[in-house]
């Protein structure tokens, strides 16, 4: 079992996302996260999908994805050097001075930003690898956390490698 980050170029069609999602549920593959948005070419979407499974399962997943008529191209980023980033928006309690100080210190250490301030809470923006975001959440005392919103991972190959139609 290994975690794989698969990057997919697909037609920007109404049904395309549900074809991918449907494939995963129909064949019992798991999805840890999935992000999708249009690219510089509005007729195409780029999807980053994080899944896990044995080598055989991952091979089947990539083959089955390739078989979907709406899928233009895909790459298993995990097979090469690549960069992964995730964005998190997190609302935490910041009622007392003490709490405010502690949260600010952590945000600095993790290079996040406080993007909204209310009477009793801060909203923080943090980007990074999945691990970094996990670590930030862990570093906060659990009772402080009000709400967590994560985008899921977006990935891209390093260097000259790129996924194009």
């Amino acid at each position: 079992m290994r975690r794989h980050t698969i990057s997919i170029l697909l037609e920007n069609e109404a049904g395309a996302l549900s074809r991918v999602a449907g494939l995963f549920s129909a064949r019992g593959y798991n999805i840890e996260s999935l992000t999708v948005a249009p690219t510089e070419d509005p007729s195409m979407s780029r999807m980053t999908l994080v899944t896990s499974g044995s080598d055989n399962i991952i091979e089947q997943i990539t083959k089955q994805l390739n078989k979907l008529v709406d899928v233009i191209k895909l790459i298993d980023l995990t097979e090469g050097q690549h960069i992964e980033r995730e964005l998190m928006l997190i609302k935490v309690k910041a009622a007392s001075n003490n709490q405010r100080e502690e949260v600010k210190r952590l945000v600095d250490i993790f290079r996040g930003r406080i993007i909204d301030v209310a009477d009793n809470n801060y909203t923080i923006e943090l980007t990074g690898t999945c691990d970094k975001i996990d670590a930030f959440i862990k570093a906060l005392e659990e009772p402080l956390i009000i709400e967590v919103v994560r985008t899921g991972i977006s990935g891209i190959g390093r260097g000259n490698k790129s996924l194009q139609a």
Binding site: A14, G15, S18, R19, G22, A26, V69, D70
Partner: peptide
Amino acid sequence: GVTRPCVKHNFL
């Protein structure tokens, strides 16, 4: 939607 899992492809 109904036929998605049992067609090679479909169009609206």
